[in-house]
Design a binder for these strands. Structure first.
Lengths: 231, 231
DNA sequence: CATTGCATGTCGTCG
DNA sequence: CGACGACGTGCAATG
């Protein structure tokens, strides 16, 4: 990895056009060819960047840039698209390289998958007498998070979100439309379950006869998933 | 901005739990307190990070980490939430600081806003004899990108996207449902316009009687928006 | 301050 | 390789 602190301007052309006026910034050049332009504030997204695969070529400054005091022009070109990043270097404050080796990678734990796992073990939260058919019940238009048998006949399709937004309701609606054409499964009721359900999403869901279920993550973790009947 | 290259492990707890095994990485500490952990590959997203506002406290290593050779423990805590980033430092390869000053900021050009502007000047692409009512026509559930008068009576609602996805069709469908309840506007036809329309989105749109319109950005820029009739 | 919709979204997964 | 859904989504505009 090469880290360059330089006084520069940056121009991106590709899916949009963007320009960065002259200022001192960090240019991060990764081993896979990608380039990141970072300022001293803002969150993890760089001001400008180029994703791999891409190639960097360095040329001496010419024309107006040269007259304005530029020394080099860095061209970063995307290998697949015609996206381009042009970095005009006026002065280099620092330029260091380090060999970092290959990163062993990130280990993640406990997102929607965990919530789904918990709810699959606690389907009584959806309906006291419901039973699980399976998680990730696959349909032609995507997997339904949970499919349950309704004690009164038919089934229940559960769409699970961390944040219950309007998009999730649309998604569940499409699933229900499809599932209800299946005479073996029909009638299929919908349950929209999330840690938090936005008012607009709730309104839309209830308007379509979809039940909303707010889940308390801490509460769900607290209950013994092996012996829920003890509580 | 402070740049540290260090042999370290990283643990994040917050909306999820994540762990990075021991390896050499770049730790970027920005002036606003945010911290980014980067490897030598992957795109602009760091392996781990903490958004501002947050605070960094440094402690000497203790316990098992100390026995394993660690020297310092960096605690990065979010000011608002209880998200936390723990960085265990085993050895520091490099540690440099630079004053970058405040960045003048990014100038963007040519996103959906520009496309909307162009199409507003070239409504004949939607229908040869349509006329513009207004851009960003506001409704109770959000703004319609373009509202046009249809020469045969009624109106046309245009939903504009760079990439035409299924979500955009759902959005337009909701608008149409609402607009068609307005007797002054009805009947309101829908046009789904994008630089690229995904097959599934096209199928769904046409199934609902919504016309699809693929836009050529270069072509639209090429036409003189003041005198379109000359071409 | 909450909500909404865009993003050069990025990233995984599965067909 | 394309399509689709999740993301510690982030982020700005807006009521």
């Amino acid at each position: 990895m090469r880290l360059v602190i330089a006084d520069c301007t940056v121009d991106y052309t590709g899916r949009l056009s963007a320009h960065l006026p002259r200022a001192t910034r960090l240019l991060m050049l990764k081993g896979d060819g990608s380039v990141l332009v970072h300022a001293d504030s803002g969150s993890y997204k760089p001001l400008n960047w180029m994703n791999p695969p891409c190639t960097l070529t360095v040329e001496p400054a010419t024309g107006g840039a040269l007259e304005a005091g530029a020394v080099e022009l860095w061209k970063v070109a995307q290998a697949k698209t015609d996206d381009q990043l042009l970095i005009t270097i006026y002065s280099v404050v620092a330029d260091v390289s380090h060999d970092l080796g290959v990163d062993p990678g990130l280990i993640k734990d406990g997102v929607e998958a965990h919530l789904q796992e918990l709810l699959a073990d606690q389907v009584h939260r959806v309906h006291p007498a419901a039973t699980l058919v399976r998680r990730e019940y696959f349909t032609a238009i995507g997997p339904v998070d949970l499919l349950l048998v309704h004690p009164d006949g038919g089934h229940i399709a559960v769409e699970l979100k961390r944040r219950g937004d309007i998009d999730g309701v649309e998604q569940l609606t499409r699933y229900l439309e499809l599932l209800n054409r299946d005479t073996v499964l029909a009638p299929v009721r919908g349950v929209f379950a999330a840690q938090e359900i936005k008012p607009q999403a709730r309104t839309l869901a209830e308007d379509r006869g979809i039940e909303c279920l707010v889940l308390d993550y801490d509460d769900m973790r607290g209950i013994d998933p092996i012996n829920p009947q003890l509580f």
